[in-house]
Amino acid sequence: MPETATSPFNIQIGNDLTWNVMPLLHEVKHALNKLIESGETTVIDLRSIPLAPGEEDRILQTLGVGEIQAKLNALGPSEITETRYAGIWIVTHYNDEEDIIGRFIEVTMMPEILCSQREDMIAAYEAFDTTLEENNESSVEKSE
């Protein structure tokens, strides 16, 4: 959950510190429209936009939390949250030390990172096959 912006340095955060919050949210709105109209997905890197202290929190608060919250563990944890607006997702990648290494707004039906990957499925098939064969062998051994 995003924390509300309280700074130990008593830095007061105005309501219109940079010009970036509203334009960004509008960009997300247009991206959602594009997704509905043509199925085109959009990814916005939150790190590439200059934001004042507390502004990222304000963006996250505006978008809120919706029905899906997924966690994955791949080179450190990641959080994938569908916001209260269906089709708008927040993807946050952490490293092993739980530092944020990337945060994206994805406007998509399903973030790519949640989908099973073909290469992994091929490896999984082989692994599964091996497991089953081992099971088979062991059950054959038992029955003998």
């Binding site: 990814v43 916005i44 791949a74 080179l75 993807v91 990648h93 994206f104 992994d120 490896a123």
Partner: peptide
Amino acid sequence: GISRRSFLKFCAATASMMALPPAMI
């Protein structure tokens, strides 16, 4: 033994680090 999914995450973080737009991932 690093999965493709981990690799994708790694690429997303790397693209972000290189200041490349996410479309370049």
